[in-house]
Design a protein around this nucleic acid. Structure first.
Lengths: 342, 342
DNA sequence: TTGTAAGCGTTATCAC
DNA sequence: GTGATAACGCTTACAA
């Protein structure tokens, strides 16, 4: 190594260390450094160790932007969270967070960067632009919210995306979700066993996932059973609490309640209790998601469990298929009834 | 426009539309297209409109990777979430999610991309590498978890970062948090008014934020007051529930409880109720965060409110200062007691 | 196994 | 106002 080697370091010129610098220090060429650092085979042990030593010594890290510019893929996935439903005093079910953790980990395993989709992205065009701008290779939507129309539009484009949520029967895109219809059926069967006749469904069926749960419930109902529906405005504890209280004031009390989330279930229990309508004494109740507090609530809430651990991995796998141009089928993950006190 | 224009589009050669294509179509040069699309002044109205028309017609979007390679900043911020505390059955307080929403929006306003920090990043070196690799310009840590040591290490480097959480007295880095000590004091004052003498603090003081709350509580205590501490293992509802039950079995019941979160407060109420120790009949209780269900729980929980709406904006502002090389002072956001039934 | 050369698509610099 | 030209730092041919 000649003394000049240090002097020609680009960092000495006030810039950051580049691959060329490492190449010079290790007495190899740039491509060889590249090969070593991206772990491709076909490099001699000597060259490899010299490169690694030089890189470590000079704190060199490959410039990700340059790499991404050069290669066809960005290796970045945009994740879309449904903040709208969680802000402004509405409640965030831990559920989405668990889903995010799962997705994040699955992507990390595949060396994919996770971009949080900016809240300004609303139209299909805007999403397509992000792909064209090479900001990401595809999208994972965590929760459908009121995006049904967006998905239909997006499915007409070549934008790779997967959606967490119910797969609509004729959906042209890949949706991975728990079997919401089954969830509803399980709730219905539970009510039948309890001999309940006047069922109340709490949830906004404008959301596809939630409508499927309602339909499952309806499927399970035999003749002689009456099903009423209480549309709560937001995914919120307070609004559910208020709606539930108002409902009791105007209607005959139900002897079974199926709530779209455990949080909503808690709100119903609280509101009904204030009116003297007690669970499980006066009615059966099934929640959704099996969040930890459900087990320890008083009464312990019977609920439908979703397989969050699997979900992230499967979503990511499907998206990768789509990005690589393959077809990806929608999938339904099984749910099960967790029987507790209600 | 000559017919050749279309034929020379790079998209016709199977590549995506580039700035050069738009330049040709609009009869200007690449730099002019760049000027128009990045909104810089000094372009004639004619050129501007031709460029915009051509870009729109061909669905052109500026290649973000190329732009980032060229410019000094990546305009990307890495956000670090504390999934560890939220996974595997532990509870996610909606609080973090609200914080994330706030940060995400504040960054979007400044045209910053949000990268979710990969779960593999643990050491200070790994974080520094991401900056050197130009994966991001800086970090926002949402929640300290058990990262105290990491922050100290990171503060010795030139990595720009800000932390949501308590600012340690001698901290060398920028921490933005609510005034946890004040929160503790407010709880203590509430207990004094109720005439409580045997206080119980529920929370793990290994977490700095939580220790500050404990210290605030202690500050508020006058002589003759006994304070006990119950360290719960995780940020979890179930573990708090179990610990609280076990506590009552071995100790004299407290007449005041200060829990590190509303969720934990709910767990305490439930566990104590099962042992016949009722709130507010037998003890006063203060939670933390003012999550929506706290208001509608039975009993409605008295709690400490944190200014989540402000937090995101302030964190981002401070980080931008750090990235631009300026100093950024830690900040304490005020908290207030929300008085309810407990 | 290794090196040379040629871009990837943008923006900065400097002329005009 | 506008345009030619040269980087930015890497990877992919292709050649040796």
């Amino acid at each position: 190594m000649k003394p000049e080697d240090g002097a020609t370091l680009s960092s000495a010129r006030g810039k950051s260390v580049t691959m060329g610098d490492i190449a010079r220090l290790a007495n190899v060429s740039k491509p060889t450094v590249s090969r070593v650092l991206s772990g491709s085979a076909g490099v001699s042990e000597g060259a490899r160790s010299r490169v690694i030593a030089a890189a470590r010594e000079h704190g060199y890290a490959v410039n990700l932007q340059a790499r991404k510019l050069r290669s066809a893929r960005t290796n970045t996935v945009a994740v879309v969270l449904d903040f709208g439903s969680h802000r402004a005093g509405r409640i965030a079910d831990p559920f989405v967070f668990e889903l995010l953790a799962g997705v994040s980990e699955a992507l990390s395993v595949r060396d994919q960067d996770v971009l949080l989709s900016p809240p300004t992205l609303v139209t299909a065009t805007a999403h397509a632009d992000l792909i064209r701008a090479r900001g990401a290779d595809g999208f994972v939507f965590l929760g459908q919210g009121d995006r049904a129309a967006l998905f239909v539009d997006l499915a007409r484009t070549s934008v790779p995306f997967v959606v967490w949520g119910a797969a609509d029967a004729g959906a042209r895109y890949c949706a991975v979700g728990s079997d919401n219809r089954l969830g509803g059926q399980l709730a219905g069967e539970h009510f039948l066993k309890r001999g309940a006749k006047r069922w109340l469904f709490v949830g906004d069926i404008a959301h596809i996932e939630i409508r499927m749960r309602f339909e499952g419930l309806r499927d399970a109902a035999s003749s002689g059973i009456e099903i009423d529906r209480l549309a709560v405005e937001h995914l919120a504890y307070p609004s559910t609490h208020a709606s539930a209280a108002a409902y009791l004031a105007e209607h005959a009390p139900p002897d079974a309640v199926f709530a779209f989330s455990d949080t909503a279930a808690m709100a119903v229990i609280a509101a009904f209790r204030e009116a003297g309508h007690l669970c499980p004494r006066d009615y059966a109740l099934v929640g959704y998601n099996d969040i930890p507090p459900a087990a320890h609530f008083t009464p312990a809430i019977t609920t439908i469990e979703q397989p969050t651990h699997l979900a992230g991995a499967i979503l990511v796998e499907k998206l990768m298929q789509r990005i690589e141009g393959a077809r990806a089928t929608s999938a339904m993950l099984p749910t099960r009834l967790v029987l507790r006190d209600t």
